[in-house]
Design a protein around this nucleic acid. Structure first.
Lengths: 221, 221
DNA sequence: GATTTTTTTTAGATTTGTCTAAATATTTTT
DNA sequence: AAAAATATTTAGACAAATCTAAAAAAAATC
């Protein structure tokens, strides 16, 4: 696998995440995600297209090619392994790990990453519950569902959260919700989208729609 | 502490190492150390001078200012802590750690480095025996001497080695010499500079002048 | 001490990644 | 379907870090 610049890697990663949900990624979408101008984005898209990482026709948006996806998964692997390391070994909190991993992920030494993986005991998910791709780029696609779409009275297990901020962490810690927590939705209120949920050996909790939208669940293992 | 680019950090670190032994660092010396052209070096020196990291007058060579030395020590701290991590936790060999740490050292997050230091148990020296500066930039200046200058029949302890190559590692492993090994010089031969040395519970060993020049020792603790 | 050699600096280009402003294409609205 | 709004691309500029070639300064040699 060739090496790419920090900038190239950031674009590739952002495209990967954006194309997860929906069709082609647009110039403005990507520019916003990366905090850059649409003009810079177009420039970079031409470059990535030349390197065959991208399927891109002017004005039509873009998707990663097979090769581009491989590169993206390798970056995501590095990112999530460092996140796991930071949380597990260096005792950083959940909301701190992302920013530091953004820097560490660009050190692209395959042997380093594989040794780190081994040292950490081949973790399956990062501290936010997102799956970590293996050396070959395989990634567990757990069919997670947003808590807002989960049926009532059905046991669920929290598999991931999509907001990584300290504010969300504070709220989740207060409510005693973390990755792996089992819960069921008892009641939903159409007025504001809030819901009452039940955790084992805990009184009924009320959570806002905003919070529920950022919690992803799966069937109880 | 401000942030510096990867290039700036590489120049700063190289100047620090070069000025350790001798007077002002010259343009050609630095250009050679960093594998760049003298012209690029002059450009960068102007820049570092503007940032007050350097004492530099055209044609006179340069030395780091007090501020510049602080920056250098911070980079060296990061480098050596990562080297320790790579050797101790990820089981990399001695000659592999330097190149990887060259990349990791540029991730300059103070909290990350202090947590790493703590996680590693505040190691005093890196895998090559070089001292690791503490958070404040204090560095143990062990008055090490080159083995070629050590008196005969006097017990010494290996404190560091100045060549980090795999070839040197191979030779040292074969001779069973490592950081901390105690030895004494029994005989020196003027003809080729080779010497006979004695390790505890080992037969007499002969080592070349070239090898001895890269081994640094201290009084037995 | 004048000349040659070496070292250092300057001048001018190049690459990467970015920007703003203008031009062009597409989509939406009326 | 024409006009207005929005999205995208092009054009031209700039900063950082590098290069080569030429000029200038310092050191070494004769």
């Amino acid at each position: 696998m060739l090496n790419y610049s920090v900038s190239e890697e950031n674009y590739i990663k952002a495209i990967y995440h954006l194309q997860q949900m929906g069709q082609n990624v647009t110039t403005n979408q990507l520019a916003a995600a990366i905090h850059t101008s649409p003009a810079s984005t177009t420039d970079m898209m031409k470059k990535l297209k030349n390197k065959k990482l991208l399927n891109y026709k002017p004005y039509q948006g873009f998707r990663l090619s097979v090769g581009g996806s491989k590169v993206a998964l390798s970056i995501i692997r590095r990112h999530r392994l460092w996140e796991y390391f930071l949380a597990e070994k260096l005792k950083f909190t959940w909301d701190e790990v992302h920013a530091i991993a953004e820097d560490l992920e660009h050190v692209s030494n395959t042997k380093l990453i594989n040794r780190l993986d081994e040292f950490l005991g081949f973790p399956g998910v990062d501290p936010h519950g997102d799956p970590i791709p293996d050396e070959k780029g395989n990634i567990a696609t757990h069919a997670k569902k947003c808590l807002t779409d989960w049926p009532l009275q059905t046991t669920a297990q929290v598999v991931s959260v999509s907001d990584h901020s300290g504010k969300m962490l504070e709220l989740l810690e207060h409510k005693k919700i973390k990755i792996g927590t089992k819960l069921s939705v008892r009641k939903k209120f159409d007025f504001d989208g809030s819901m009452e949920i039940k955790l084992p050996r805990q009184p009924l909790l009320t959570i806002s729609e905003q919070l529920a939208k950022n919690i992803f669940v799966n069937h109880d293992a």
